[in-house]
Nucleic acid binder design. Structure first.
Length: 868
RNA sequence: GCGGGCGUGGCGGAAUUGGUAGACGCAGCGGACUUAAAAUCCGCGGGCCCUAGCGCCGUGGGGGUUCAAGUCCCCCCGCCCGCACCA
């Protein structure tokens, strides 16, 4: 046998990548009548370099894309760039690079990295969201959304960074300070654009039930986020301390109208108009409002804040008992943004109300009581009785509702409120409208002009896109669009008067809320070519990180609905199946002085870990998500350089199921690299054996066993890929390679013709089944095996049914549930025969020990259990 | 607090509908080859025991259902994630 050459991934991979590109293997076919499969991974932000999370994400998608292609599907597997966002502006401020330059350079670099990983992406459909050619459609759709009543402009409180002169997202406020400037963040009221996602609250909630191939976890998170609750809205009559009627009645929302007879106070939000009114004339109320506002910024403060309130000189008249007047408070735990910003307090049956009542010495009147407790014994201590669904509860102290269950009482109370004409049944949602205005440069300009005469005017569609000016500066705080000398000064398209452009840009989440649809027709004159979308949409498999469980995925579902209602799309649910992959994690390292050390600088010696350069002792810390701050980052480019793309792909698919976190280890990668070499040697070896093209001669037992192993592995791997269980598929492939190695060894240098055939057949099947995971190695092996043409274009093999059938099966024999022997029987052997054979076993006889056999359970193909 | 998930060797993880627990990989140990090393190949590998067996125990803990439980039911413990004053 000639000495096999080491497989050299670097040259080989480049060669096949070029071949694939020339053959256009990844190009989705237009106008095809084949069934389609749209596999999409969340597109990356072009931060500069790809990271291991990308490698995992895109490898998962690529395996599926290649597999589906081989299965005969017309596969759409596109890639683009989520290219607007803050880091580009930060780079501009830090390094003086223009955001556009920075972004497009990053894209070019990362595209090269993705290509070197061998992902079969249809690059002809590529776009970046910062291309005017992309965002002009976003602007056009926004105008259509306006016409459809899905856009609103209103004042809203924002986090304002006084140093950077910009609005911050909640996530960018850390302990009340701006994450970049460190300045104390202020609440400011600004005019903002909103998309009315609440219009679809019910539909977004209901739609979740249809998404069978979404993780339950994500659906639950979205359900909670939408936060539907059923209850009643009604109004209190208010009177002042002189018993004079207050001009405006006070609306409140409650989910517990059944507990109305237990009400002992009414509370409004510190931001409520009533509170504000009293704050104007009463300094104590004003102080209280300020105190609450100050507390509002830090999340921890909210968590631990004590229930606090201040009396307002008002009383609320109980709707069912006109002679009862409830004191009105402004209270810190009542949110202006939910419901009506006002509540009635029923201390006996709500924990917050109870805490509040104990503090201010308000009555606690139980109105719900367990059936078996006498009403006069029903007392509330420090814990409110909040249950209302239990059937063993009855209403007490509630006049005409006494004796009803809380459930019945809810209905009765609502009916009464309706009869009195002061309230009705209402459904409330936690979901708020989506504020999309950002005071930033590097985003999609909002296509609006403010005219002193005409007010808000839409930019006419023929004037789109409103493009970003490129001659901007980043040397001052604030929005560069705001201070640009000319950009914002325009004539009103309606009356021609001097007017100003909207200088806010869109939240970048808008960009990613419809890109999946654009990929169907990336160069269309319309946002989406409906004919194309009708073929390609929905995305059959969407893959990405769990961190987008709510925002991106909910916004996308909203956008699809809004697009449908404005004629830009034909369906409501863009992603038929969702897969959320786990993170790539790595051990962390620190020196004894506490400095983080990157893995590349850690040297493993017999007596511990040491810093490669300084020689310091290094301590291994917990395994955590790769992050720059902890320096536990492995650069994919270095891995590809050292081991090749296939090794990286193989390792990241091995061991851990894709939905779980995977630990990146040097040893693991080495193992994957060894496997690549082993496979190559084996294929090279088998390729040099002359094998018959057909097998008409007698097949011996060894050859048959190998054939069966290969075909079974194929069947298993096919199932596993189909179910995205790539770690299992890989285990099956390892098993086949082990079996082949054994057969090879047994057969020696000159195998008989039946074995030669079996080896070659196994080799070909092996190569074809790992091809989606290690496509370069597969092509090289395919060629070595004498094939012409690309494996990437070959169909998926099918196992021969005859070889999947087993003639005999091994069955365990248990006595009283304990395994005592194993028998081999014909697969279709009758139960009686199996039973007889089992009882004949020596070990079984010993275990039975002459005791009478009470029962024998035979599960054909699985087990025999003898009960004595 | 509410909701979701998880708990299996030294580690990552397999295990069909309840049917031989620990597939496969990593690390480890032993051996072959070699002057030596690397590479490669082969083998071993849950725990316990002065009883080494035809033994006993074993999937976070306790109980239950069953001929049979990692898997189903009840209770408890621990960990991870999400939401959190939502009336």
């Amino acid at each position: 046998m000639n000495k096999p050459q080491r497989y050299a991934p670097k040259d080989v991979e480049r060669k096949w990548q070029r071949a694939w590109e020339e053959a256009g293997i990844a190009k989705a076919e237009e106008g095809s009548d084949r069934p389609k499969f749209y596999v999409l991974e969340m597109f990356p932000y072009p931060s500069g370099r790809i990271h291991m999370g990308h490698v995992r994400n895109y490898t998962l998608g690529d395996v599926l894309a290649r597999y589906k292609r081989a299965q005969g599907f017309n596969v759409l597997h596109p890639m683009g760039w989520d290219a607007f966002g803050m880091p580009a502006e930060n780079a501009a401020m830090d390094k003086g690079v223009h955001p556009k330059t920075w972004t497009y350079e990053n894209i070019a670099h990362m595209k090269g990295q993705l290509k070197r990983l061998g992902f079969s992406l249809d690059w002809s459909r590529e776009f970046a969201t910062c291309d005017p050619e992309y965002y002009r459609h976003e602007q056009a759709m926004f105008l259509d959304f306006m016409d459809a009543g899905l856009v609103e402009r209103k004042k809203s409180l924002v986090n304002w960074d006084p140093v950077d002169q910009t609005v911050l997202a909640n996530e960018q406020v850390i302990d009340g300070r701006g994450w970049r400037s460190g300045a104390l963040v202020e609440k400011r009221e600004l005019d903002q654009w909103f998309l009315k996602i609440t219009h679809y609250a019910e539909d977004l909630l209901k739609g979740l039930d249809e998404l069978e191939n979404w993780p339950e976890k994500v659906k639950v998170m979205q359900r909670n986020w939408i936060g539907r609750s059923e209850g009643a809205r009604f109004t209190f009559r208010l009177v002042d301390e002189q018993d004079r009627e207050w001009p405006e009645p006070l609306p409140v929302f409650t989910t517990r109208p059944d507990t109305l007879f237990g009400a002992s106070f009414v509370a409004v939000s510190p931001d409520h108009p009533i509170t504000k009114k009293f704050a104007e004339e009463n300094p104590e109320v004003a102080a209280f409002v300020r105190e609450c506002a100050a507390l509002g910024t830090s999340e921890e403060a909210i968590e631990k804040a004590e229930k606090k309130g201040i009396r307002l000189p008002l009383y609320a008249v109980h709707p069912f008992k006109p002679d009862v007047k409830l004191p009105v408070y402004a209270a810190n735990f009542v949110l202006m943004t939910y419901g009506e910003g006002a509540i009635f307090g029923c201390p006996a049956h709500d924990q917050r109300d109870l805490d509040f009542a104990r503090k201010y010495d308000l009555p606690v009147i139980p109105v719900v009581c367990p059936k078996d407790t006498p009403p006069d014994k029903c007392e509330i201590g420090d814990e409110a009785l909040t249950d209302s669904e239990r059937d063993d509860l009855v209403m007490i102290n509630s006049e005409w509702m006494n004796g009803l269950t809380p459930k019945q009482a809810k209905e009765a109370a609502i009916a009464k409120l309706e009869e009195l004409g002061i309230g009705e049944r209402q459904v409330n949602y936690r979901l708020r409208d989506w504020g999309v205005s950002r005071q930033r440069y590097w985003g999609c300009p909002i296509p609006i002009i403010h005219c002193p005469e005409c007010g808000v005017v839409k930019v006419p569609k023929q004037d789109l896109p409103v493009t970003l000016p490129e001659d901007v500066t980043f040397d001052a705080a604030g929005n560069p669009l705001e201070r640009h000398p000319t950009w914002k000064h325009v004539k009103c398209p309606q009356c021609g008067a001097d007017a100003t452009r909207e200088t806010d840009t869109f939240d970048t989440f808008i960009d990613s809320s419809w890109y999946y649809a654009r990929f169907c027709s990336p160069r269309a004159e319309e946002p989406v070519d409906l004919d194309k979308a009708k073929y390609w949409m929905p995305v059959d498999q969407y893959i990405g990180g769990i961190e987008h469980a709510i925002l991106h995925l909910l916004y996308s579902r909203f956008f699809a609905r809004a697009m449908k209602d404005t004629g830009h799309l034909h369906l409501k649910e863009p992603f038929a199946a969702l897969f959320t992959q786990g993170m790539v994690v790595h051990e962390t390292y620190k020196t004894e002085s506490g400095a983080w050390v990157e893995p590349a600088l850690v040297e493993r010696r017999a007596d511990g870990l040491f810093h490669r350069e300084t020689g310091e002792k290094v301590i291994a810390g917990p395994v955590e998500k790769m992050s720059k701050s902890k320096k536990n980052v492995i650069d994919p480019e270095a891995i590809v350089e050292k081991y090749g793309a296939d090794t990286a792909r193989w390792f990241i698919l091995s061991d851990s199921p894709p939905e779980r976190d995977i630990e990146w280890t040097e040893a693991g990668v080495e193992g994957a690299a060894r496997f690549v070499q082993r496979v190559w040697r084996m294929i090279d070896d088998i390729a040099s054996i002359a094998a018959p093209a057909d097998i008409s001669a007698e097949v011996g037992p060894d050859a048959l066993a190998l054939r069966q192993a290969a075909h079974r592995a194929l069947a298993e791997v096919t199932k596993d890929i189909e179910g995205l269980r790539f770690n299992r598929a890989i285990a099956r492939i390892h098993e086949l390679v082990n079996a082949m190695g054994e057969a090879q060894r047994k057969a020696g240098d000159a195998p008989a013709s039946d074995m030669a055939f079996a080896l070659r057949e196994a080799a070909e099947l092996l190569v074809r089944m790992f091809a989606p995971m290690m496509p370069h190695l597969a092509e090289e092996c395919w060629q070595r095996l004498g094939h012409e043409g690309l494996l990437a274009q070959a169909p998926w093999p099918e196992p021969e049914p005859a070889l999947l059938k087993q003639d005999t099966v091994k069955m365990a024999v248990q006595v009283n549930g304990k395994r005592r022997a194993e028998i081999e029987v014909a697969k279709d052997a009758p139960k009686e025969e199996i039973e007889k054979l089992a009882l004949e076993q020596e070990a079984v006889q010993r275990a039975v020990g002459g005791k009478p056999v009470r029962r024998v359970i035979v599960v054909p193909g699985r087990i025999v259990n003898i009960v004595v």
